[in-house]
Design a protein around this nucleic acid. Sequence first.
DNA 1: ATTTATTATACCTTAAAGGGTATAAATATA
DNA 2: TATATTTATACCCTTTAAGGTATAATAAAT
Lengths: 78, 78
Amino acid sequence: MEKNNITLSRFIKEKRKLANLTQPDLADKAGVGLRFVRDMEQGKATLKMDKVNQVLKLFGHELGPVAMNRKTLFHEES
Amino acid sequence: MEKNNITLSRFIKEKRKLANLTQPDLADKAGVGLRFVRDMEQGKATLKMDKVNQVLKLFGHELGPVAMNRKTLFHEES
DNA sequence: ATTTATTATACCTTAAAGGGTATAAATATA
DNA sequence: TATATTTATACCCTTTAAGGTATAATAAAT
């Protein structure tokens, strides 16, 4: 699978673990399919933004443009 | 059209203007269709991440998870 | 006011995302 | 070790994003 956005991938996996949720749990809560959560955590590059945002919203985040350098994101102030 | 991510929409429109590019110009440079650039600038919510990233890359940015509060993004340090 | 350039809408086709389900693999637990 | 739990992979189906093209609507310029 063409992968990309390891940042997003790591972010969601980390947040999910911290919340003690399984992938099915997260899928339910976010209202997306299980397959989607998996694709997301594996860094699938062609995900649709709206679906990704449904998931990110659970953790108070959303997709947005970020500068490409800072390879260590999500240490913002969460 | 279901719109979302006004942030992204404004970001791309702003960057394009600053670079003195027309929508067709940007589409060419990014390797995406003209229709896509337009959907993007109009805040279409269901865009695919990889295509959006192709465009953002031209401006040194990419999609990533950002905290939902800060409604005024892209004053990072660009 | 009239071109000219830029942006927005509409229709059609193709490729693929997302969901469901089933199975396999991996990880954790007893 | 086995056994349960969680995660990964594979298949089919439906929906739709994205591109192309054409047309309409603005905006800019002369």
